[in-house]
């Protein structure tokens, strides 16, 4: 049966092209190409639109802190203060959120009774569903007032550290407040990803640690955290990405000033995203183009952060299966 025709027409075996396969393959590669096209399109837009103002800028864009762009004559603006504020706010948020998120994730994965764990996981996920404008309202309407006495104490006790130097802003609308609100906002994503990774630690590794006489905490240190490291970093970087780009909450909370100030408890500093949001409605002259240039810087920072994260995650590849 199988040999009847094959001798007459020797053919290389050829797969039949099924219509479903063709459609699926094209849809999938089309989607993949679309992502690249969107990314390239955004980058091209930012570059083309910003060239205009950057060419006319009379100040050094990267070292100037001021923003005198809403004019047709000799604009002078720079992104230095904005970039500094952006990174600072995100760094505060990350420093506060990561340890807490890892703690919550460990508690959910290894300490909480099963029922409590699922409820808790659900609540953390709900935090992610709160719109950022609501966080902003909460921050400015409630949190800053609660934090001001704490800032006073911090400044009195640790004022000799420049970060906490006074005079403390009486409104509480400071970099520290913005950082704390951002920390709450990025907590869910870091927690969720860390928890998922912790739950994936193979039973074999956990039992290996326990069989050596490890306590639960030692088991976590030996088997869970090293295994989950890449996941924690990945989650933190996603959180960092969100914190860098977060606009509404920062715009509402921070009392902006275009300065480079390390004093977290005084008013001042500003982030790129919030600056764009606040300035855009009244931008004239080279204003819009200048804001787009600032957006390009934010884009670049985020790109570098993500690539850095990938590098860190990949560096330890040899040691993960």
């Amino acid at each position: 049966m199988t040999t009847t025709d094959s001798s007459a027409t020797p053919q290389t075996p050829k797969g039949k092209r099924r219509i479903g396969d063709v459609v699926f393959a094209n849809t999938a590669s089309g989607s993949g190409i679309l992502i690249l096209a969107i990314l390239a399109g955004v980058a091209a837009f930012l570059i083309i639109q910003s060239v205009d103002s950057l060419g006319a800028n009379t100040a050094n864009f990267f070292t100037t802190t001021g923003w005198d762009a809403n004019t047709r004559e000799a604009p002078a603006f720079g992104v230095a203060a904005l970039a500094f504020g952006t990174v600072l706010a995100a760094a505060i948020a990350l420093l506060i959120a990561t340890p807490i998120a890892v703690g919550i994730a460990l508690f959910i994965a290894y300490y909480a009774p099963r029922k409590l764990a699922s409820v808790l996981g659900y609540i953390v996920d709900l935090l992610a569903a709160i719109p950022s404008v609501v966080y902003g309202l909460w921050g400015i309407g409630y949190l800053v007032h609660q934090l001001t006495p704490f800032y006073q104490w911090l400044s009195t006790s640790f004022g000799w550290i420049p970060l906490f130097a006074g005079p403390v802003s009486s409104t509480g609308r400071t970099m520290m407040s913005a950082g704390i609100v951002l920390a709450v906002m990025i907590l869910p994503i870091i927690t969720a990803i860390s928890r998922d990774v912790f739950l994936q630690v193979p039973q074999a590794h956990r039992e290996a640690a326990l069989s050596l006489g490890a306590t639960r905490w030692e088991m976590i240190r030996m088997a869970v955290l090293p295994f989950g490291r890449a996941g924690i970093i990945g989650g933190a970087m996603l959180g960092l990405g969100r914190a860098l780009g977060e606009t509404m909450a920062v715009a509402m909370i921070l009392s902006p000033a275009l300065v480079i100030s390390p004093h977290l408890l005084q008013s001042g500093n500003q982030t790129i995203a919030a600056h764009i949001a606040l300035q855009y409605p009244e931008a004239t002259g080279y204003g819009v183009s200048a804001l787009i240039a600032a957006g390009l810087v934010l884009f670049a920072i985020t790109l570098v952060v993500n690539m850095g994260a990938r590098y860190i995650v990949a560096r330890r590849k040899e040691f993960t299966e």
Partner: peptide, 16 residues
């Protein structure tokens, strides 16, 4: 468990 050690079915060295 410090007195009574254990070896498992699948080799499970710590991967990191």
């Amino acid at each position: 468990r410090r007195e009574i050690g254990m070896v498992f079915q699948r080799p499970n060295p710590f991967p990191t």
